[in-house]
Every structure is written in structure tokens, then in C-alpha cells.
């Protein structure tokens, strides 16, 4: 019963959105500009802003996440105070509500760094948000590697940097890929952290310092602030849902593959 209920809920949501949204999605909708605050036209610029925000976010978050994980495994002795401090603060970071990231991003990136409401501020805010995911998955991936690997590489007199880039990184790559996909899904679905960092602008962004709304902000704005916007919003919601489901499916697929290989 309970299982049916839970699975049924998912189907209910998906079917509802498909019913409301499919008739409105075509190529035109995905590419043309937003008109009459979304009641007409398409979501072309919105998709562009979303992708740019995502790009900024990943370009910053991946090096930091992976670097931080490697620092924990390679540079400090396990169980040291520093590691404990770092894992604890990453845990805390993961539990912070996304709206608080929005508040922080607005104060730090928009005002103090002077980036204003821009795609860059939004991307950096999201980067802070998905950092814990990347650190944890990379950490899990590196720690699951057999210790002989590192020992024999060291015994061969390889440099630390060579060991990292040639031996450990390629082996940990599948795990990092999982973190990457989960991070992308998380960043794409985020709204609260973006409203006050990337802003609401509907025109096509010309640079990273322009304001641009992500697709989730678009759905929010349409459903809440535009009268009769809900029917149109369902099309955008369907697009977002399909993309997210696909990415999550990929993440599951990757982790299944990886688990098979590890075992």
C-alpha cells in the first residue's frame, strides 16, 4: 500500500505535468524569446541564462570540490584535527537551507564584490551550494581505491603530482562523474538561491555580468506573479522535469556501473 502510494505520487506529478505541458512544447517554444512576461513566446533566453549559470557554477565548484577531497586524502594524515574540522564544516555547509545561500550570495557576491544581480553571482552562489556534494562523492571515490595503488606508485618514485593526476584521478573519475551529475541536477533545480543573485531579467544575457533568470525562477515567476501564467509555466516545468529526470537517471546508471566494477 505505502509503496504504491509513494510510487503513485511520482507518476501523478509526472502525468499531470505531461498532460498540461506537452501541447505547448515545440521547437519554437524552446528557442524564441520571452514575450508578455512569459504568456507568449518561448523560453530561449531563459535556457541560455540557465546554461550560463550552470557553467559558472561548475567551473568554480569542480576544481574546489575535487581539490578539497584530494587534500583530505593525500595531504594530511587521516584522523587529524584538520580533517575533522573540514568534514564537520562541509557537513554543516550541506545542511544550510538554500535560501540562506541566496542571502549570503546577495551580500557577498552582489554587493561586496560588486557583481550586482548577475549570472556570475548566481553561478558562484550555486557553486558554494553544490560544493559539499562534490567533496563527498570525490572523497568516497578516492577512498575506495585500493591502497596498493598509491603505495606502489610511491615506491616507483613518482612525484605526488604525477600520482594524483596520472594514477588516482583517472581511477576516481567514475565517482567524480557521479558527483558531477548529482551536482548538475541540484544546481538546475535550485530556485531560492537564485532569485536574489541572478535576478529576473528575461532578455537574452550578453555577458556574464548581465542579469538572467534560470528556468526554475521563470516557473516561479510565471506561477506566482503573472496572472494566468500557470498554464504556460507548466510547459517550462515539464522541460525542467524531463531534463532533471534524465540527469538523475544518468547518475544512477553511472553509479550502478561503478559499483559493479568496484565489486
Amino acid at each position: 500500500m505505502a509503496a504504491v502510494l509513494s510510487v503513485g505520487a511520482l507518476l501523478w506529478i509526472v502525468l499531470d505535468l505531461v498532460k498540461m505541458g506537452t501541447s505547448q512544447i515545440d521547437w519554437e517554444f524552446l528557442t524564441s524569446g520571452v514575450e508578455e512576461s512569459g504568456r507568449a513566446g518561448g523560453i530561449g533566453p531563459v535556457i541560455k541564462s540557465t546554461l550560463l549559470i550552470l557553467m559558472c557554477c561548475l567551473l568554480v565548484a569542480i576544481p574546489f570540490g575535487v581539490g578539497c577531497a584530494f587534500w583530505i586524502t593525500e595531504m594530511v594524515s587521516p584522523g587529524s584535527r584538520l580533517t575533522a574540522w573540514l568534514t564537520r564544516s562541509v557537513d554543516l555547509l550541506a545542511s544550510i537551507p538554500s535560501i540562506v545561500f541566496g542571502l549570503f550570495g546577495m551580500a557577498f557576491f552582489c554587493r561586496i564584490l560588486g557583481l550586482g544581480f548577475s549570472i556570475l553571482s548566481g553561478g558562484l552562489t550555486l557553486a558554494c551550494m553544490i560544493l559539499p556534494i562534490l567533496i563527498r562523492t570525490t572523497l568516497a571515490a578516492v577512498q575506495s581505491l585500493p591502497p596498493d595503488l598509491r603505495l606502489s606508485a610511491t615506491a616507483m618514485g613518482l612525484r605526488k603530482s604525477t600520482i594524483l593526476s596520472r594514477v588516482l584521478l583517472p581511477r576516481a573519475f567514475p565517482g567524480i562523474l557521479i558527483g558531477f551529475t548529482i551536482g548538475v541536477a541540484r544546481a538546475l533545480s535550485e530556485t531560492a538561491a537564485l532569485i536574489f543573485t541572478s535576478g529576473y531579467a528575461t532578455r537574452s544575457p550578453a555577458s556574464l555580468l548581465d542579469s538572467g533568470r534560470s528556468i526554475s525562477v521563470h516557473i516561479f515567476d510565471m506561477a506566482m506573479n503573472v496572472p494566468n501564467g500557470a498554464t504556460r509555466a507548466s510547459a517550462s516545468a515539464l522541460v525542467l522535469l524531463l531534463v532533471i529526470l534524465m540527469i538523475n537517471y544518468l547518475a544512477n546508471y553511472f553509479s550502478d556501473q561503478w559499483l559493479k566494477k568496484v565489486n
Binding site: 509513494s6 505520487a9 511520482l10 506529478i13 505535468l17 541536477a185 538546475l188 533545480s189 535550485e190 530556485t191 526554475s216 516557473i219 516561479f220 516545468a237 525542467l240 522535469l241 532533471i244 529526470l245 540527469i247 538523475n248
Partner: peptide, 8 residues
Amino acid sequence: LAGVPSII
């Protein structure tokens, strides 16, 4: 279901 965005 866990991955469905909250906005949805």
C-alpha cells in the same frame, strides 16, 4: 522522486 526539483 528525490530528484524532482522543489519548484516543481
